[in-house]
């Protein structure tokens, strides 16, 4: 009997009161606890922290995704490092990247842009992966390369306090700023 009563007490405490309390506090957080969205001209185009699919040449691309960037789910590819089929997929991505980015050497391609992320929703790429796409984006948009490069510069997020976390670029924010360029 004690088991049953204590179970009921703990359900109320841990599964009802605790989540409701946190949810209440969450209303004061950015986005009201529903996630922080990004809007262009008043229309929500995405979540700040959720990556999106970019396949058109006029946009900077994000990383390959095992869930095709549909955040109704999330997953990595779960391919092992020695799997021959997987290595062929990476090779194909490299070839495709070279075809879309004329004038780029293979050694300029950073691994993160040809390997799938853990969540399939990675919002970031490495700064190198952004810079390597500058020539293509500039050519398609008929804008000076320097201007695009400067835009990437301003979107590189440096390690916090210089020591915490790798440098990175939020692809969605970069592409929104890109669309706003004249």
């Amino acid at each position: 009997m004690i088991s049953l009563k204590l179970t009921l007490v703990m359900i109320v405490l841990c599964a009802v009161l605790y989540p409701l309390f946190i949810s209440g506090i969450g209303r004061m957080a950015p986005g009201g606890g529903k996630g922080v969205t990004v809007a262009v001209n008043g229309k929500v185009v995405g979540y700040e922290r959720i990556g999106q699919k970019f396949t058109e040449d006029k946009y900077f691309w994000g990383r390959p995704s095992a869930v095709d960037y549909n955040a109704a789910g999330s997953a990595g590819s779960n391919k092992g490092p020695s799997n021959p089929d997987y290595l062929q997929i990476v090779q194909d991505r490299i070839d495709s990247f070279l075809a879309h980015n004329p004038g780029i050497k293979k050694t300029d391609i950073p691994a993160d842009i040809v390997t799938a992320s853990g969540s399939g929703l990675d919002p970031h790429i490495s700064p190198e992966a952004a810079y390597v796409q500058v020539i293509r984006v500039a050519a398609v948009r008929k804008l000076p390369e320097q201007k695009i490069k400067n835009l990437v510069d301003t979107h590189v997020e440096a390690p916090l306090a210089g020591v915490l976390g790798p440098s990175r670029v939020n692809v969605l924010k970069l592409n929104i700023a890109l669309d706003a360029l004249k």
Partner: peptide, 14 residues
Amino acid sequence: VSQLTGAMEGKEVR
């Protein structure tokens, strides 16, 4: 290709 940031399959850039 360049693996400046190490093995990235299944990992997040951040």
